[in-house]
Write a protein that binds this DNA or RNA. Structure first.
Lengths: 225, 225
DNA sequence: ACAAAAGTGTTCCCGTTACACCCATGA
DNA sequence: TCATGGGTGTAACGGGAACACTTTTGT
């Protein structure tokens, strides 16, 4: 007998709001539920926390199943615990967001999991309280993107500045002056220019940059707006 | 039979990191645990989530029991779900912080609950993962205090500017120039000067101000640093 | 030659900071 | 009168925002 045996117990789930850039557009990875409740509805990817598994590990497991990767960038958004949030049974859910780069997933595996990339500006109605989770996530990552070097997680290891700028404009929801943007980037030592050029988007080509985590110190200021 | 009957279930608790200003010092409301596990250790005030009760309601219930009040300012900090965080049995906990004004609690009731105000700069060792919760809470409220008009919840309905400034200095952890601070306050329409004077702290007396929620619009800028 | 995207500096302005003295009052 | 805390303005500085043209190259 344990200490708390007179207390009620609950199903606890993790729900992962997974971001990716597909075809230049910021997307969420959504699934159509294959079972009741809310069968057929779109929802974010989730799973139940298991015995002996921390909530963070549960979220990492969901991501591992979808990507085969263990080191996906991830942060907790918060707990959602309305009584009626799941119409089937009571479930308390912890939301996490994750950022996937283009090489971090295999389209075939996603398909096998009934998961699809849906552009953020074109989301279908979501089930449960997932719209609320997505809202809270968006306001969280807006503030994170401004002050933490995490945007690179959504891009390939080598990326161009126009790519990076477009990403920031999408996340922050406003256009950014090109020259001011590049000025700020130039002041960040951890964003280093390579001598490679990407010609997929223009005749002239754009220089490729990479994020060098080695050169990033946690208390160096990183502000992009 | 429910939908999820093959899934494990967990005890879910709420832990409230409760702030108050006592004797001019910023304090946390802590309790000595009266039962195992961790009997005798200091901890923040918590309780188990009940059937049919949302996690927010559970936190409000903990606060209601301590204060008799239902409208305490409160915000979720996040979920804590390490497997071993509670040495007794596995418990997943959702942390909330709350801000109490001087009139929001009754010392006798607190005593009946084995709760005491402990200055933040003099915290005893805390049990469980409560040090982690407190850390995360502090970084959260630092950013909140800078951008949201919530500091007033820790003060009486009428407060002086020196009081408010000291509070901000404590929360932000750095001294603030008096004239610059008052200049910023003067630009905030929702902080209104009354014609009352508080003479408890000086011969000259300090003007009393109040926060007027009516005059506060959610998108008016509120920045104090 | 031209279309299409990448790249590049300077100026102005406003908000932030730094800073020192007088005021009101009770003891 | 003096000690104590409350209250007030200005000048210098720096970071942010606005702004337009040149470069490269494939077709």
């Amino acid at each position: 007998m344990g200490y708390y045996s007179d207390k009620p117990r609950f199903y606890v789930a993790v729900d992962c709001i997974i971001f990716g850039v597909v075809g230049g557009r910021l997307c969420l990875l959504l699934g159509r539920r294959r079972f009741d409740p809310e069968k057929g509805k779109w929802s974010v990817m989730g799973g139940f926390v298991q015995e002996g598994e921390s909530i963070g590990d549960a979220a990492r497991r969901v991501l591992l199943n979808l990507t085969g990767l263990r080191d996906i960038y991830m942060e907790q958004v918060g707990a959602f615990g309305s009584v009626e949030r799941d119409p089937g049974e009571r479930v308390i859910s912890i939301a996490y967001y994750a950022l996937l780069g283009p090489g971090d997933y295999d389209p075939a595996v996603l398909q096998a999991n009934s998961a699809e990339w849906i552009p953020l500006d074109n989301l279908p109605p979501l089930g449960f309280d997932h719209p609320l989770m997505v809202e809270k996530t968006l306001s969280l990552i807006r503030s994170r993107f401004s002050t933490e070097p995490i945007g690179f997680n959504l891009l390939p290891p080598l990326f161009t500045l126009p790519q990076l700028q477009t990403l920031y404009e999408t996340i922050l929801g406003q256009p950014i002056d090109k020259r001011n943007f590049r000025k700020r980037i130039a002041e960040i030592p951890s964003i280093v220019k390579t001598d490679l050029i990407d010609k997929t988007n223009s005749r002239r080509g754009a220089s490729l940059y990479r994020f060098d985590a080695e050169r990033f110190s946690p208390d160096s200021k990183f502000v992009i707006k």
